[in-house]
């Protein structure tokens, strides 16, 4: 049977990745250093960690179950941080 027009317009299904786990901040900082980002300030408490990259004007808030990366418009640095962070998490 020919597809009806609405089905032809439907977006293709894209499988998505689910990330989970806890970030070990020291491992994360080591991974950043491997990416060439070594000017890092880490402040850790029991509930959360603040990681500051003053040279790149970037702030990373790590809490139990969530991470927020706040940065300027330099996509190349953001992608390096993202990739280092994803290495600290597990995927499904």
């Amino acid at each position: 049977q020919p597809l009806n027009p609405e089905d032809k317009l439907a977006k293709p299904f894209k499988p998505r990745t689910y990330i989970y786990g806890t970030i070990n901040c020291k491992t994360f900082v080591d991974l950043l250093a491997k990416q060439g980002i070594s000017d890092v300030k880490l402040e850790e408490t029991e509930e959360k960690a603040i990681i500051e990259l003053p040279n790149d004007d970037i702030l990373i808030q790590v809490e139990n179950g969530s991470t927020h990366i706040m940065c300027g418009g330099d996509e190349s640095v953001r992608v390096k941080i993202r990739d280092a962070l994803l290495q600290c998490l597990q995927k499904l």
Binding site: Y18, I19, Y20, G21, I23, G65, S66, T67, H68, I69, M70, C71, G72, G73, E75, R78, R82, L85, L89, L92
Partner: peptide, 17 residues
């Protein structure tokens, strides 16, 4: 995910131009 006892990690980005 619930059945597996897994909570998804919420990763967010804010880029400022």
């Amino acid at each position: 995910l619930r059945d597996l006892g897994i909570k998804e990690h919420n990763l967010r980005f804010t880029s400022t131009l």
